[in-house]
Design a protein around this nucleic acid. Structure first.
Length: 190
DNA sequence: GTTAGGG
DNA sequence: CCCTAAC
């Protein structure tokens, strides 16, 4: 718990993931690219993306290369917990508040920039839009690879509720009102 | 500085 | 995921 970032992220499986928290930014103008796509390639036997099955968050790079198929250089996989947290954050503050969401809901995430959240939301929207065609004849049933139905439903609700309310982020919520923060939407920048 | 859109 | 443009 050296950094305030580590709060709920419980990675107790492997002790190699040290690149969890701690902004290792070079603080320079030249290297603003962080160390994305350049993660320390630790060739371990098998790095499986496994969660604690219930409440523990997940945080592991998609580097599942077994003994026979070295497939490094992959992207990060957004998991259900992250998608849930994203949808949850949006349900709390509203769409288009990535910076705020990242600061509150993803404060423990070293990676995933506000832009990343928006990117994932875009993909989620695409999935929520391409679902439920159970009529007509085109059955694009989920191959079980996509997100759960309830998640898709939440995404659809949020998308239908407000595309991107640049006015207010609080109130008008009923999906999972966990406690609307009293912070005004006037969070100007530096 | 942040959000939005496209590659 | 990364870059660019607009707000």
């Amino acid at each position: 718990m050296g950094n305030g970032a580590s709060g709920d992220v419980g990675i107790g499986h492997v002790g190699i993931n040290s690149w969890e928290d701690g902004d290792l930014n070079t603080s320079s103008l030249s290297f603003q690219r962080r160390e994305r796509s350049q993660k320390p390639e630790i060739c371990m036997e098998d790095e499986v993306e496994e969660y604690s099955s219930d409440g523990s968050e997940d945080e592991v790079v998609k580097k599942k290369f077994k003994k026979g198929g070295d497939r490094r250089k992959h992207q990060r996989m957004w998991t259900l917990s992250e998608a849930t947290k994203l949808v949850d954050g949006i349900s709390q503050f509203g769409v288009g508040r990535w910076t705020q969401i990242k600061r509150l809901s993803f404060s423990a995430s070293a990676h995933r920039t506000p832009i990343d959240l928006r990117d994932k939301w875009r993909n989620l929207l695409r999935a929520s839009y391409a679902q439920t065609p159970t009529k007509g004849g085109i059955e694009e049933e989920n191959s079980g690879r996509s997100l759960p139905k309830y998640l898709l439903h939440q995404v659809r609700e949020l998308a239908s509720l407000h595309p991107y309310p640049r006015k207010d982020a609080s109130r008008s919520l009923f999906l999972g009102q966990k406690g609307v923060d009293g912070r005004s939407v006037r969070r100007s920048n530096a």
